[in-house]
């Protein structure tokens, strides 16, 4: 091909001239613009804050989330320290030997066996909170991983994983939970001896997590499918980014809002799910207290009518935990969303 005559670049489209005349005309003072600098509002010197500071500030400005964090933090602190201060939760007060209303000796009263409700509540908090958080984070991790893999790779990977999710979701959850719980708990089963050394509460948490991730994986997958074809993912690929980098840096952070919502809901779901298992005798076994089995023990009409303190205190503990976790989840989601940052 012969050398081309260089096209004339002297003439400009009208729009360019218009833009230039505007640029020149609207300025009150003849300020010399630097070469190629776009016409922009005078840069308001934004304080140089790191991303982490911005996220923290944004979280703190969400008042409900911040208060919830303080409440949840103090609950965790009380549950961690309380058992060293309070009496033995399994000790029976032989002077009472029955449910007794709150008094000076027993601030939250005693249960039907004459055990101190406050001591049991604080001890139970350790187990229940641990189960709640382990299940929520475990299920969110499994679900997010499956969802991202299925959505990102698509095709056969997607079909296989979503088939598994559908199968697990169609099985009624309580019978499934019960059979797996039995399998894990019984020393004569195949995996029973293997997990014998694992604490009981963790076994139950693991079962709940392994059977509770399907919902989040579906939601994450649908999010990933729409993100996968976004131009910024294509841009990362054009820059030479690997699949794992694209998934971790570009796709996962954009799914954070759905994952945060799910995780907070899963905390309450796990605490209540454990109580359902306890009620069926497959949860954490007595006399170890959990909020769930304290409720289960007090779950008869006579108790609700006459011994309100055996029902209301564990219920209140679950209620406050669930509420504050949900607010914190809200705050985290907003804090991680750059559009709501201040």
């Amino acid at each position: 091909m012969s050398a081309a005559a260089q096209p004339s670049r002297g003439h400009l489209p009208k729009s360019v001239r218009a833009a230039q005349s505007v640029a020149g005309g609207t300025q009150a003072a003849p300020v010399r613009q630097p070469y190629r600098r776009e016409i922009e509002a005078p840069a308001i010197a934004a304080p140089a804050r790191t991303q982490r500071q911005q996220v923290w500030d944004s979280f703190c400005s969400h008042r409900a989330a911040f208060i919830s964090l303080i409440i949840l933090g103090s609950m965790i602190f009380i549950c961690a320290v309380g058992p060293f201060v309070l009496q033995d939760p399994e000790a029976i007060d032989y002077d009472v030997l029955a449910a007794q209303a709150p008094s000076g000796a027993h601030l939250f009263g005693t249960d039907q066996l004459g055990r101190d409700v406050l001591a049991r509540l604080v001890n139970a908090g350790r187990t229940s909170l641990a189960i709640g958080f382990v299940v929520a984070f475990g299920a969110a991790a499994i679900g997010a991983w499956v969802g991202v893999m299925a959505g990102y790779f698509g095709g056969r990977v997607d079909s296989a994983l979503m088939w598994l999710v559908n199968v697990l979701m169609t099985i009624p959850s309580l019978p499934l939970l019960m059979s797996v719980a039995v399998l894990v708990a019984s020393p004569s089963s195949a995996i029973g001896p293997l997990v014998k050394s694992v604490p009981e509460w963790f076994r139950i948490a693991a079962v709940l997590a392994l059977l509770g991730w399907m919902g989040i994986s579906r939601v994450v997958r649908s999010q990933v499918v729409s993100l996968r074809n976004q131009e910024f993912v294509e841009a990362a690929r054009a820059l030479g980014g690997t699949d794992s980098r694209i998934m971790l840096v570009h796709i996962l952070p954009n799914c954070v809002s759905v994952i945060a919502v799910f995780t907070t809901l899963a905390v309450s779901g796990a605490i209540i799910g454990e109580s359902a298992l306890s009620f069926l005798g497959l949860g954490v076994s007595p006399p170890t207290a959990t909020w769930g089995n304290m409720l289960a023990e007090a779950r008869d009409l006579f108790a609700i009518m006459n011994y309100w303190w055996t029902v209301w205190f564990p219920a209140l503990a679950i209620f406050i935990t669930v509420l504050s976790v949900n607010f914190i989840g809200d705050g985290v989601r907003d804090a991680l969303d750059p559009k709501s940052m201040k």
Partner: peptide
């Protein structure tokens, strides 16, 4: 070999700062 995309609203990751977006190619390589 690089590309500039059509839609400036879709081609930048909304969760990354401008600094991270521009330095990403440097990090990758």
């Amino acid at each position: 070999l690089q590309i500039v995309f059509q839609d400036p609203y879709a081609s930048l990751n909304p969760r990354m700062t401008v600094g991270n977006i521009i330095s990403e190619p440097l990090v990758i390589h």
